[in-house]
């Protein structure tokens, strides 16, 4: 293996050449030279890292924030894709700085441990979007079988849906099996595995006008595309809140909690970059705003970047208030 020495030398040489810094590509714009008003606070040099969960709404928030922060505040924003389960540990460890759409119903335990316990994560305030998880069925089903519009009517008539309930991504917030068991419904839960698979199943059923009962939520652009009715479940109460927060869902027997989506930040963000911290704290928009962009992406075939830019260009009045003053 005498030549190993030579190969190593070669590698060092070549890498040495490469180590001289980034190539200045012709026509490449240097980032951070944003043109915004001079009274807007500017970001520091360190990149701001935003967690992006694997659903469209989460990506929309992140792209809106990235677009504005880079163009108006000279920030460098990196988007880090991660599953929901990883985001609180990531925030606490400082791997990411913020996540913009936490569904409280799924993170009661995390909220308790990390935010209330003061373990590296802080509540970043409401996003303004209100989520609603629930059981949905196409309206044509309810028209034919009005009784299934509530759980009481559904009980005993589960065969309308062939005794099947379609769950979504198992990593989402789910208590379907508990609800079914505790309400004594005769339904078998199967899981599509992802938002997109659920949508595919919905699309298939819708086209064939077949009955389907599924876990779904709003805000979601599909709510506009398909006419869906929510099945009424027992009202959300204290006991269910307790079951979700401390007992891993044991005994859960009511509707999903109305989800006032919130933002969560690493507790180091404020010192790391006060301007970014202020902006992200201020960021707040509505279901309609988010839906508009999501629809353009998922149904209109635009890229996230394009859709976010289009919304930013058209809605200055909404986001101008988010910008921190210098």
């Amino acid at each position: 293996m005498k030549h190993a020495r030579w190969v190593a030398l070669a590698a060092v040489l070549v890498l040495g050449l490469a180590a001289c810094g980034d190539v200045q590509e012709e026509g490449a714009e240097p980032t951070g030279a944003g043109g915004g008003a001079t009274d807007v606070a500017q970001c520091g040099s360190e990149p701001i890292r935003l967690a992006v969960n694997p659903w469209t709404g989460a990506a929309v928030n992140a792209w809106v924030a990235k677009t504005i922060m880079e163009q108006e505040m000279g920030c460098t924003v990196e988007l880090v894709d991660m599953d929901e389960f990883a985001q609180f540990p990531a925030l606490a460890a400082g791997d990411v700085d913020a996540t913009l759409e936490v569904w409280p119903s799924g993170h009661a335990k995390d909220y308790k441990q990390y935010i209330e316990g003061g373990k590296g994560v802080i509540d970043g305030g409401e996003l303004g979007v209100v989520g609603n998880i629930g059981w949905f069925t196409p309206t044509y089903v309810v028209e034919e079988h009005p009784e299934v519009a509530s759980w009481e009517g559904l009980k005993g008539n589960e065969d309308v849906f062939d005794n099947k309930f379609l769950g979504a991504d198992p990593t989402f917030t789910i208590y379907d099996e508990e609800i079914i068991e505790n309400l004594g419904l005769d339904l078998e839960v199967t899981y599509s595995g992802s938002e997109a698979a659920s949508l595919a199943a919905l699309d298939k059923a819708y086209e064939a006008r077949e009955p389907i009962l599924m876990y779904f939520w709003s805000p979601h652009w599909a709510q506009a595309k398909y006419d869906l009715t929510e099945v009424q479940l027992p009202e959300y109460d204290e006991q269910c809140a307790e079951a979700a927060a401390t007992k891993d869902g044991e005994g859960y027997d009511c509707d999903y909690a109305p989800d006032v989506l919130y933002k969560a930040f690493s507790d180091q963000l404020e010192t790391k970059d006060p301007a970014a911290f202020a902006f992200l704290s201020n960021m707040r928009y509505t279901n309609e705003d988010q839906n508009e962009i999501a629809l353009a992406v998922d149904d209109g075939g635009q890229s996230l970047e394009e859709a976010a830019q289009a919304w930013v260009d058209a809605n200055r009045d909404v986001w101008e208030a988010w910008l921190p003053k210098a």
Binding site: D83, E84, F85, K109, D110, P170, T171, F172, T190, Y191, S192, G193, S194, A197, D248
Partner: peptide
């Protein structure tokens, strides 16, 4: 388990997502 097979794989995923 990720795409509806259920069983142990699904349970592993749930354990992961619910920490």
């Amino acid at each position: 388990g990720m795409i509806g097979a259920g069983g142990l794989g699904f349970e592993a995923l749930v354990a992961l997502s619910k920490k």
